[in-house]
Design a protein around this nucleic acid. Structure first.
Length: 315
DNA sequence: AAAGTCTTCAACCGCCGGCGA
DNA sequence: CTCGCCGGCGGTTGAAGACTT
């Protein structure tokens, strides 16, 4: 087993802080500053361990802490930063003035993460969840027996005629292996970069089941991962915007992926791929969300990393 | 109104890395 | 180089409040 918890020794107090304890800690730090957390509680007359004092101060008592609900801009920044930094809460917090890592972590776990899951987005990879996607997509394609969709399903499943099984076991095997591949687990931001402008999404590599979303308009980049339809062929469609970092810090996760599955494609112009400051209205997304919640989700998940967030050091 | 369930978030825990001896 | 201390980090817990039945 690990070492004993630091607060177990000497009968130090645990649990919620009282207003009196808070005041003692505030008074002491205002007078002496904080430095040696190990000796601080004793000097301040607190029956707490140094760790507990540090946590209480940094997460709650610090004067520069901004309390209250997260703003739209803050939430947007958290999602953007998380897509780059992963669960580096302290690094994310460092870029959100007045917010603590604990607060951001809690907010992510209780709000953002759940919303992403509801929308079929893996909150870890910020990619569509293949475990949901593959079956729903495949079954969705096969669930109506009109001619075009049967053609689609036979192509999807590699069949040549006659009634094919709904799900090719090989596809499921492939999906399982992709889901469990080490590369998929890799959260190192380096993993997001590629020598080409757009990273090949490892999620979709080597799949033969993809159905291209055709984009005939050279001025419009398809910004959609077709949850409700079949797979986009990321490999073959040169105009498809892939959900990974580019070299100019734009993270082109398809807004429609996060947008709640309206089924309609959404578009952005190529010019919008340049970095745009937070709060800017320069983005030229056209979203097709149908509900307030979906619209909100769609908006906040446009992955453009503003310059001021300064994530380059993590690249 | 009461009981059960769900959600939130402050606080704790153990691990890790930096640093000085 | 090794060891121990300390601060910091991310994951997890559990009490309390909110919500539902």
């Amino acid at each position: 087993m690990g070492r004993a918890p630091c607060c177990d020794k000497n009968g130090l107090k645990k649990g919620p802080w009282t207003p009196e304890e808070d005041q003692k800690l505030i008074d002491y730090i205002q007078t002496h500053g904080y430095g040696n957390w190990r000796t601080l509680p004793k000097n301040a007359g607190l029956q707490r361990c140094g760790k507990s004092c540090r946590l209480r101060w940094t997460n709650y008592l610090r004067p520069d802490i901004k309390r209250g609900r997260f703003s739209f801009e803050e939430e947007e920044a958290i999602i953007q930063l998380h897509s780059v930094l992963g669960n580096k809460w302290s690094a994310i917090a460092a870029r959100l003035p007045g917010r603590t890592d604990n607060e951001i972590k809690n907010y992510w776990n209780t709000h953002i993460r759940k919303r992403l899951l509801r929308m079929g987005i893996d909150p870890v990879t910020h990619s569509p969840r293949l475990d949901l996607l593959d079956l729903s997509s495949i079954l969705g394609c096969c669930s109506f027996y009109n001619q075009s969709q049967m053609n689609m399903s036979t192509r999807l499943l590699g069949g040549g005629g006659g009634v094919q099984p709904l799900v090719n076991p090989e596809i499921l095997r492939l999906a399982t292996s992709i889901m469990s591949s080490p590369q998929r687990e890799n959260q190192n931001p380096d993993f997001l970069f590629h020598e080409n402008q757009y990273q090949q999404p490892p999620l979709m590599q080597n799949t033969s089941v993809a159905e291209p979303v055709m984009n005939n308009n050279p001025n419009v980049i398809i910004d959609q991962f077709p949850f409700n339809g079949c797979f986009t062929d990321w490999q073959n469609n040169a105009n498809a915007v892939l959900p990974y970092l580019t070299e100019d810090n734009y993270v082109p996760v398809p807004s429609n992926c996060y947008g709640g599955g309206s089924g309609e494609p959404s578009f952005r112009t190529p010019s919008s791929s340049s970095p745009t400051p937070l709060n800017s209205n320069n983005s030229t997304y056209i979203n097709s969300s149908s509900t307030e919640d979906e619209s909100y989700s769609s908006d906040i998940l446009k992955f453009e990393i503003p310059d001021f967030l300064d994530v380059n050091e993590f690249m």
